[in-house]
Design a protein around this nucleic acid. Structure first.
Lengths: 260, 260
DNA sequence: GAGTGGTCTAGACCACGCG
DNA sequence: GCGTGGTCTAGACCACTCA
């Protein structure tokens, strides 16, 4: 990667082997380099990354090109800009929005204030991955995974029952205490204690009836319809790192979504 | 708005009356002007807007400033860029994604192919707004609204039951034939026949049990949990223009959502 | 006042679509 | 070959933060 625009495609495949020229703008390549540093922990969550000028010097491109790269990273919530201060590695802790991935809201607007949910961890143990869990997490059936089950209550009312599966390798030693004790988002604990940062997620929603055990945890009867939310959360690289199956009570809360 | 940077805040409040200086970047002001033209139909959905160079000349700013304004409009899906061709007013018709706001997907991936839903319009009539409908649509109780009810089926299986409310004034003369007959998204028909373009929407999801009538329309029994989706769709200006209450069967489909 | 991100400009060149 | 959006640069100045 030199400083002349004409060599912007330096990273392209070698001599004529490719049908699609795979032209890649310089700023995309810079973005890739910054992303690489993020993945490999050159800067930790919450820390500032080098200034645009500094990165421009390091990569031998103009500040405007670095800016466009960082613009995209900021749009993807991987990085947070603060005018006058710098650009910071995004983190699930100390973020203005506490539960970024939780779309359940109380029916009576009341912002997202609402006491930040009491957690009861029902269990947390090391198990072997079933076929479907393994497939979701890109593991092999029988591989070690950590499994946790917990109940979240709002104002004393049990509202969410969740089962969580995590790859055993990355989350070796996870305890019920960690799942319960940490103040703030569980994903913030994952960053601090395991160095795993969840970057994006996909959810599949369905309406279901609970089985008797589930109904008991949520203090409803088995004829109460519940919102089933299956979430697959990814870290950098689109690597799946968490499978979560949740049951939400939607009598006092609703799942809120914005479309555009 | 002159061409010197120092007058970038031309649109700010008059002499010292404001506590918050309300500095507004030039590109935001340009964005506002383009938005105004979009709202007032200077360019119709699907048409090209003037080139960046042309707009830069019209507004007496640099092409880069226009570009940044259009960048934001494109990010909000109000406008679509096509390299080499131009920038086009976004439309719900002829878009690569047919049903942009419909997040229901068949369980067996199968892309979004799946035959584009047979529509059965059950009713479509002019009624007086109830209190809650009026509040949602920013009308007064008793104002005229159009109400439609329909069933969407996939592969012959009734899957969605929807009630739709629209402001009577803007949608005067809407018929069941229009709701049923139009090929493609209903929102495309709204653009063509009523000049109303839906720009964004909010949805509230819940798990519910159907009443006997609803169950019959969806060919399920009253103990089958269904996904209740209440959508409020907005046109330009954040003006609410449609209330939609849907019941989704989630035995063969699921509601898919991306978080980031 | 020094440093950071944010805005604005002007000009050169590239990739794409189409006649 | 022309016009469009897309990339890249370089430099000036503005707004914000903090010491």
């Amino acid at each position: 990667m030199s400083s002349t625009p004409s060599s912007a495609a330096d990273g392209a495949p070698a001599a004529g082997a490719s049908l699609t020229p795979a032209f890649s703008p310089l700023y995309q390549q810079i973005k890739g380099l910054i992303l690489h540093s993020l993945q490999h922990g050159e800067w930790k969550p919450g820390e500032a990354i080098p200034s645009e000028t500094e990165l421009a010097a390091r990569f031998r491109v103009s500040q405007g090109t670095v800016r466009k790269a960082i613009d995209e990273l900021a749009a993807e919530n991987l990085v947070m800009r603060r005018q006058g201060k710098g650009t910071f590695v995004a983190t699930h802790a100390e973020q203005q929005v506490q539960y970024r991935f939780l779309k359940l809201q109380p029916d009576n607007g009341d912002v997202r204030g609402e006491a930040p949910a009491e957690r009861t961890v029902v269990e947390c143990r090391r198990v072997r991955a079933s076929a479907d869990v393994a497939r979701a997490l890109a593991l092999r059936t029988g591989d070690a995974v950590m499994q946790a089950r917990r109940v979240l209550s709002f104002a004393g009312v049990p509202t969410i029952l969740e089962d969580i599966w995590l790859p055993g390798q990355a989350f070796k030693g996870l305890t019920a205490g960690q799942m319960a004790g940490y103040q703030g988002p569980t994903y913030a604990m994952f960053e601090l204690d395991f160095g795993v940062r969840m970057v994006r997620a996909e959810e599949k929603l369905r309406a279901v009836l609970p089985d008797p055990a589930q109904a008991q945890w949520l203090a409803v009867d088995t004829s109460t319809p519940l919102l089933s939310v299956e979430r697959l959360a990814y870290t950098y690289n689109d690597a799946p790192m968490e499978l979560r199956r949740g049951l939400y009570r939607t009598d006092t809360h609703h799942y809120h979504n914005e479309l555009s």
